[in-house]
Simulated assay, not measured.
Amino acid sequence: MPAAGQAVRPMGPGPIAVGRASLHGIAQVTLSANPWTGLLFLAALFADDRWLGGYGLLGTLVSTGAAAALRTARDGRLGQGLEGYCGCLVGIALLVRLGASWRTALLVVLAAAVCSILTAAAVRLLGLAQLPVLTAPYCLVASVLAMALPSNAAAAPTPVAAATGVSMADLGHAFCDNIGQVFFLDKWYAGLIVLAGLLVTSWRAAVVAACGSAVAVLTAWAMGLPADRIAEGLYGYNAVLVAIALAATFLTPTRWTTGYAVLAAVASVPLTTAWTAVVQPSGGSPFTWPFVVTTWLFLAAAPAMDRPGMPYEKAK
């Protein structure tokens, strides 16, 4: 994922450089490369739960360190944090599924290291199609482990498309939690800290993330999805990432590309719902697959459209 903010200086593989790259890596979960954004995201993780912060940081450090040790990163990817964000997410995902323990920590170390290998492979393979890696390595590792490992968490109810009443409180929580659930955060104020982190990187990234969240809430409500799950942000976090990717990162900002991003955000909501229904019986989760697939499809279609802002800039 390319940086949606400042340029990052090349770095060596030393411990200090790996630590600095890890902050960039946490920020790159939302396609940013600002270390202050990474710090705010880390603060949001610890504000929600200290274990989320610890395991997210562990996964980021391991994935970044593995890429540095194996020298899989090229063209400044390590310094931009592009080798750490998948490790961050897989660390959090394993904690949520298995709970905090030394076994979970060991699995995080192994899974985050594998993420660095898969990222290197994805860069080469997806580069042929001029598509960004996004969170695909994390999704692949997390999906395999989710189906293979037992869970300490209570099974979530299967979503049903039945009409439900959504209160103003539900809408407010949904708006914040759509943003927070990018990091599995379920406290509304943690989502606002994440939004503040985006604002540090780019006002446009923060605005489109907020718009993506609002679009997801309206779409889920129009689909008649359960109010409690709308409020938890389970249908909207992919839309937030899709909006950031298309409206603030890959496509040149124009009215056309903004509308295109809104359409993509809308499309990600039913895709998230369908993906959840398919994988839940086997113990899986959609993770950010709907974001990855939606973004790939809309970016792949972009060069065929003779519109301002198309095609997109090639991603790293």
Rank of each mutant, 00 (worst) to 15 (best):
T252N: 11
V262N: 03
P253F: 13
L218D: 00
V266A: 02
I230Y: 03
N238E: 01
T257K: 04
G224C: 11
P226N: 01
A247Y: 09
L246M: 13
A261M: 10
A247W: 07
N238M: 02
Y260M: 08
A245L: 09
V242H: 02
F250C: 05
T219W: 06
N238W: 00
L225M: 13
G233A: 14
T252G: 06
Y235I: 00
T252A: 12
L251K: 05
T249Q: 03
A248F: 02
D228W: 03
D228N: 14
V262I: 15
Y260W: 15
G224Q: 06
A265Q: 06
V217M: 06
A222C: 03
A227I: 10
L246R: 13
A261K: 11
P226Y: 00
I244T: 08
A227R: 08
T258K: 00
P226M: 01
L246I: 10
T249S: 10
Y235G: 05
A247V: 08
M223C: 00
T252L: 13
N238F: 05
A227W: 14
G236H: 12
R255G: 15
V266Q: 04
A239C: 04
V266S: 03
I244L: 14
D228T: 15
D228P: 11
A248S: 10
A267Q: 03
A267W: 06
A265M: 07
R255I: 04
T254A: 13
G224T: 06
L218N: 05
T249P: 06
L246T: 10
A220K: 00
A239S: 15
T249H: 05
L218G: 09
I230T: 07
L234N: 10
G236V: 09
A227P: 15
L241M: 13
L246Q: 10
A261E: 10
L263C: 15
A265R: 07
W221I: 00
V266D: 01
L225Y: 09
D228A: 15
P226S: 07
A264I: 05
I230M: 03
F250A: 08
E232V: 05
T258M: 11
A261Y: 09
A245W: 13
T257C: 10
A248K: 02
A222S: 10
A239I: 02
Y237W: 03
T257G: 11
G233F: 14
V242D: 04
I230A: 01
V262Q: 01
